[in-house]
């Protein structure tokens, strides 16, 4: 495995070229559409950037609203999932009872659940956090459970031959051994949580802030530039989140799973 450093052109150049090509294609398509008078299909990239630069404070504050909802959802759903994973991996009978329900919950489109949650919890932040937490719960539960089960059998045999209690086995072996799985789950779940938060904002009409709300209200008023500006901010947010997890993951796994990557 060659160490890919971000400052090497081989690392960033392909992506930069692809991005430049995409922007050029967007520009060409948007100008040709505008020339034919079809301005409601695609805004010019320049218009989107102008919109973004024109009121950065608004985008930042809306981004923070959505991001904090997403992170709160990850915290609540993730903590619940880890706790549930620990309990279910220790009590197989309970796992056989609960896992089918979790699968059903996972295959249910959460969007369909969101209006009911709004009715139950009101238009505030709560239903949005609940939707995000539900989106996050299943992937973390499944991945962490498999991580807890994947503790090396020989180390498990040593602890069992010492008659270590289940709590001791959990604390000394299973939980630390499941850390790589937790990070795998977080890498999947953090971008997903932004999707959950935005969808919740779509559905919970009446809320006044958040990028999801900005998108729906702007679209309703035929303002495409703010819609795309919000999408751009969302994309950026996803990338930053992913980068942050990977950075923390590297540090933690250097200690808990050295030599893994």
């Amino acid at each position: 495995m060659s160490p890919h450093r971000w400052w090497h052109p081989a690392t960033w150049l392909p992506a930069a070229v692809a991005l430049a090509l995409l922007a050029t294609a967007w520009q060409l398509l948007a100008t040709s559409l505008a020339a034919r008078g079809e301005t409601y299909l695609l805004p010019l990239p320049a218009d989107v950037l102008t919109e973004l630069g024109g009121s950065p404070g608004r985008y930042l504050s809306d981004a923070w609203t959505t991001l904090s909802t997403a992170l709160l959802g990850v915290a609540v759903g993730g903590a619940l999932a880890v706790a549930l994973a620990v309990v279910l991996s220790e009590v197989p009978l309970l796992a056989r009872a609960v896992m089918p329900l979790a699968v059903v919950l996972n295959t249910t489109p959460v969007v369909a659940l969101a209006p009911a949650l709004v009715v139950a919890f009101g238009f505030g932040r709560t239903p949005k956090v609940v939707v995000t937490a539900i989106v996050v719960l299943f992937p973390v539960l499944v991945t962490v459970m498999s991580g807890l089960r994947a503790a090396p059998p020989d180390a498990l045999a040593v602890l069992r031959s010492l008659r270590a209690s289940r709590l001791e086995v959990l604390r000394r072996l299973r939980l630390p051994a499941a850390l790589p799985s937790l990070f795998t789950a977080l890498r999947v779940v953090l971008p997903l949580s932004v999707v959950g938060a935005v969808v919740a904002e779509f559905v919970a009409a009446g809320s006044s802030a958040g990028l999801g709300t900005l998108i729906t209200t702007s679209a309703a008023n035929y303002q495409l530039a703010p819609v795309y500006a919000a999408i751009l901010v969302l994309a950026l947010m996803g990338v930053l989140l992913l980068g942050a997890v990977v950075a923390v993951e590297r540090r933690v796994l250097a200690r808990y799973a050295p030599g893994r990557r």
Binding site: D154, A155, A157, V158, S161, R172, P176, Y256, P258
Partner: peptide, 10 residues
Amino acid sequence: LVPQTPALLP
């Protein structure tokens, strides 16, 4: 018990 692999906690 000394198992086949060292089974040390990394």
